[in-house]
Design a protein around this nucleic acid. Structure first.
Lengths: 188, 188
DNA sequence: CGAAACTTTCAGTTTATTCTGAAACATCAG
DNA sequence: CTGATGTTTCAGAATAAACTGAAAGTTTCG
């Protein structure tokens, strides 16, 4: 992002960052920041902004409210909402007597990061381990010092990723109660 | 990637994936796969391919060798090599009596992932914690149930990220010897 | 059925990222 | 200094990712 460009904010530019603000202003700030953070995490900015908006919203919001708040098109809002629902970070809720869909974010932080960790495991670790394993299989019969060294490298990459994947699984399945004490112990 | 395009491979297309291959072929396969994996990790493909090439290479390689192997331009090779050196994943070495620079990858897997974890911490966790903290500060004085709920959410996001960052630090600094036993204990 | 309310899709556009290739720059040997 | 060798930079081209807006699709209700 070039200097001079700013994330979209409802109602104009950000106030000086030390200042206090109204609840609405701080929410907007949060939405903008979370959008930027999302980019760094490899999540597209709009998706992260919608997520932030719903995290900060006191009640579920409709597609149109989200469109208005973020100044995005219907198609964009729809696609990203579907993706968020697909990930499990957002649920759709129906109010009785209304046809319109409303959306609310999963607000339990632990569950939320659990979902993100699971997704990352699925996208980053699993395919890597599989690819390495295929290479290792194909390298099995090769002779010579060089080949052995190469195989050793493949094996240690795979081993590391297996370990990392295992830890991620555990974090996802064990939940807050089990992992926090472990983490604190590690940090002590 | 459109159908019909394939990741660049020295000497032609990939053989059927179950087959064994010569050392050269398997190395090429590894380079192509690691490039794809890099994309999933948010690293650009060329950078990941160069890294893989150097990981798999028995000796340091020059810029020209890398260009030829991957069919990429000098500018591209140079930029990505600089970035890899900047991260610490690759070192440049000079052979005595030669002016040309050669490059070799850090081959200790533990160090390598340590570098990646540190970088991710720096890019993904630190700015997020800072942004959340700024929001929390600005929300400090706000009254009302809604505001309290919002503050609680900010606080729990921040707390979680602090914890994650701490674990990442520990993993980076403690090294293999200290972390593996902990990880295994967690998994048991 | 038919119109209203709402959602989904997608071709075309915009924006962001990555790559090329050639020129500028640096260093060394003679 | 001068030519040879090697490295860096960067404007413009190519590619990839995200977004728009309008049309098509779906559901509900009178």
């Amino acid at each position: 992002m070039k200097p001079g460009d700013f994330p979209i904010l409802r109602g104009g530019n950000a106030p000086p960052s030390g200042a206090k603000g109204t609840l609405g202003e701080v929410r907007d700030e949060f939405v903008a920041q979370w959008g930027a953070i999302g980019s760094a995490w490899g999540i597209n900015r709009t998706m992260a902004q919608i997520h932030a908006l719903l995290l900060a919203a006191p009640q579920p919001m409709s597609t149109d409210e989200i469109m208005d708040d973020l100044h995005i098109s219907r198609g964009n809002a729809n696609t990203n909402l579907r993706d968020l629902v697909g990930w499990g970070l957002v649920r759709s809720v129906v109010r009785k007597g209304e046809r319109r869909e409303y959306f609310e974010a999963e607000k339990d932080v632990w569950k939320m990061f659990g979902i993100i960790v699971r997704e990352r495991r699925r996208r980053e670790i699993t395919p890597a381990v599989e690819a390495l394993h295929r290479c290792a299989t194909r390298a099995e019969g090769l002779r010579g010092t060089e080949a052995e060294e190469f195989r050793r490298m493949l094996a240690s990459l795979e081993e590391f990723l297996q370990l990392a994947g295992g830890v991620m699984d555990k974090v996802v399945h064990a939940g807050q109660g089990a992992v926090v004490p472990w983490a604190l112990r590690l940090l002590k």
